[in-house]
Design a protein around this nucleic acid. Structure first.
Lengths: 166, 166
DNA sequence: CAGAGCATGTAACATGTTACATGATTGG
DNA sequence: CCAATCATGTAACATGTTACATGCTCTG
């Protein structure tokens, strides 16, 4: 479901686009929120066409197909925003490593945390380099806040681990 | 992979346990980090037994099977902690709704945010009511920090939306 | 003895990932 | 003409969810 919604959102925000375009835009704008590769996107667009949520506006060079959101698609998107209680499920490998941290010795724990820290720094840099327009602004703010929190947590936990005696 | 690791981690931390126990412990301790129901856990334990990572220690009443982590299992767990670069992939419906927020009108956006806010409050309450021992302490801290950040973000964004003219 | 909780599982389906495959067009 | 990028797809596999199915045991 969420993949559909994400695609409908993109089509609604940036106008008609091909699967290829969507895959790229996905990667550049939505990627800290949801991810999907072209192998997932192409078949989904076909299904969405069958369900009347999008339609092929035109076919260009190299078999390029431009999809456009339909009124039904907009309704689907609006309904989802209005009714869907967003799942709070988290599946975070970082958090899983955090969970298991006390099972390894201190040096190893420090090494694990330093790697996690580095990824938060990288994520933060990537997010800070993005200039989302109005579109995606709120998700960008959330992503930044989350990345900063993760970095802060890594630093605090590292400091805690390094404190000689507990 | 991560499901395996989570199960190995639990077995390593709390000692031998049945699939049923693991499913419950999973739900109570790991649930803000990773989730899995019994329908996923039972078959996985069978596969892990075949791979020599766990073994059936004893069979009790009602077909209850107690699994124990093997030396190979410990090695697997340690290796994963040492070598695995935790994926930073996020698939968050909350963030997706945040992303799409500007596509709906202001009243609807406020309603969406209020629902999100309520879920963060609930999550926070649940986390605050947990008293993780040493085990899971770091993940608990991270979960709390993330939930607080989410709540703060929801409040800030609500305040922003309610500000009359932008 | 009824209902709650213990305890295990299967099957169908939905979603997501990796690897493979094909061919067109454009810029250097 | 060669390499990069455009552009679309399939197939196999891994993972995760929902619904269904079965039977035991303890407490009131």
């Amino acid at each position: 479901m969420s993949l559909r919604i994400a695609l409908l959102g993109l089509l609604s925000a940036v106008g008609p686009a091909s699967g290829y375009d969507l895959a790229k835009t996905f990667d550049q704008s939505l990627n800290h929120v949801w991810q999907a590769g072209h192998t997932q996107i192409y078949p989904e667009l076909v299904k969405m066409t069958a369900d009347g949520l999008v339609e092929v506006e035109s076919e260009g060079a190299r078999g390029r197909k431009i999809y456009r959101i339909t009124p039904d698609g907009r309704r689907e998107l609006g309904g989802w925003m209005e009714e869907h209680d967003a799942a709070m499920t988290v599946r975070s490998e970082v958090a899983l490593q955090a969970f298991l941290l006390h099972l390894v010795d201190r040096d190893q724990a420090v090494a694990v945390l330093e790697r996690i820290r580095a990824r938060y720094v990288a994520r933060l840099e990537k997010l800070e380099s993005l200039r989302p327009g109005e579109f995606g602004h709120h998700a960008h703010t959330l992503g930044l806040a989350m990345a900063r929190t993760g970095l802060q947590w890594a630093d605090d936990t590292l400091a805690d681990l390094r404190r000689p005696v507990t």
